[in-house]
């Protein structure tokens, strides 16, 4: 029996002796999806991730994996790339990868077989006997990623995966994340990088000052936060746009484009996009028309700033 929600947290509370890191956070990560955990610095993302990884224990609340309360053995079903990540500098790459894989519960033979596959895939077989200290930062990041996914865990957790990765490795990471999803893995990652959220995430949750303030599907959230703005390209030179759309929409900007012009419009209360198009047809020839949805960055800023008492 498979539940639709693969990873769930229920009312997770964590307080340190000076501040509250999490006050009752509940999340549900659907199976086989990519879930983005967003929030400003110090919001509690890393605290939550550490609790899911059983590195720290919650004061109260529960973490469920596949519909069951998590047990210690479950850490072997998670691949975790922490924000603070590193390797033993004076250990050989191969030895080290083997060691970390065995700590995740793989037998020596299984680990060797899988390592061979990944080293070939990344074309880094020649690194096996090199010491980590001899590798560049970017090379080390590849190794770190590799040991995270090596044991083929059904749940992958990346904490700020794009911070500190160079652009080449960040691209590689994105590609691999999508590939892992296609293979059926469930992926949770925290990030500041809103562009990557739009590119990758199916669902997000936004955490601000220890509380979850927003969650849901990325597409739905965009709909929810849209401001009924439209971009219209129109061949209608020399007319007063403000007067033309009076009663249907408010003109935010109006830029000439050769013989045409580009208008940015916001619908007024009670009208819809069809009415706007009908109005436009009367005025001139429509070259293009599309709804402007807010970027995740806009949503993020809007939500976080709303909640911030005077700043």
């Amino acid at each position: 029996m498979q539940s639709e929600i693969f990873l769930e947290t229920r009312d997770v509370v964590k307080a340190y002796h000076r501040h509250t890191a999490l006050s009752g956070v509940s999340l549900g990560v659907p199976r086989g999806s990519i879930f983005g955990l967003l929030g400003p610095n110090g919001a509690g993302k890393t605290s939550l991730i550490r609790i899911i990884n059983r590195i720290t224990a919650p004061d109260s609340g529960q973490v469920l994996l596949d519909g069951r309360a998590m047990v210690a053995q479950d850490v072997e079903r998670i691949g975790y790339l922490p924000e603070e990540r590193g390797l033993y500098k004076d250990m050989k790459v191969g030895e080290q990868a083997l060691y970390l894989a065995r700590l995740k519960g793989l037998s020596r033979q299984d680990a060797l077989r899988k390592l061979k596959h990944w080293f070939e895939k990344f074309e880094i077989e020649s690194w096996w006997d090199k010491k980590v200290a001899e590798l560049s930062k970017g090379m080390q990041q590849k190794v770190q990623f590799l040991v995270t996914v090596l044991h083929e865990p059904p749940l992958l957790i990346f904490d700020e995966p794009f911070s500190g990765f160079d652009p080449v490795n960040a691209e590689l990471l994105k590609r691999e994340i999508l590939e892992l999803k296609a293979k059926g893995s469930t992926i949770l990652f925290s990030t500041h990088n809103m562009a990557s959220v739009e590119e990758l995430c199916d669902n997000i949750a936004l955490i601000d000052r220890s509380r979850k303030v927003l969650d849901g599907q990325v597409a739905a959230i965009k709909q929810q936060y849209k401001q009924n703005q439209f971009e219209l390209e129109l061949e209608a030179p020399g007319q007063d746009a403000q007067a033309l759309f009076a009663g249907t929409a408010e003109v935010i900007s109006d830029q000439p484009r050769g013989t045409a012009r580009r208008l940015l419009l916001r619908l007024t209360e009670g009208s819809d996009s069809n009415q706007l198009v009908a109005k436009a047809l009367q005025i001139g020839k429509i070259l293009s028309f599309r709804e402007l949805l807010p970027s995740m960055n806009d949503v993020f800023l809007q939500v976080v700033q709303q909640k911030t008492p005077k700043s």
């Binding site: 072997e76 975790y80 033993y88 500098k89 970390l100 770190q144």
Partner: peptide
């Protein structure tokens, strides 16, 4: 201290107690 400064400690902590 080496494990802390290498920042490998959190990777380890996610596998073992």
């Amino acid at each position: 201290i080496e494990e802390k400064t290498n920042r490998i400690v959190e990777v380890l902590a996610s596998s073992v107690k």
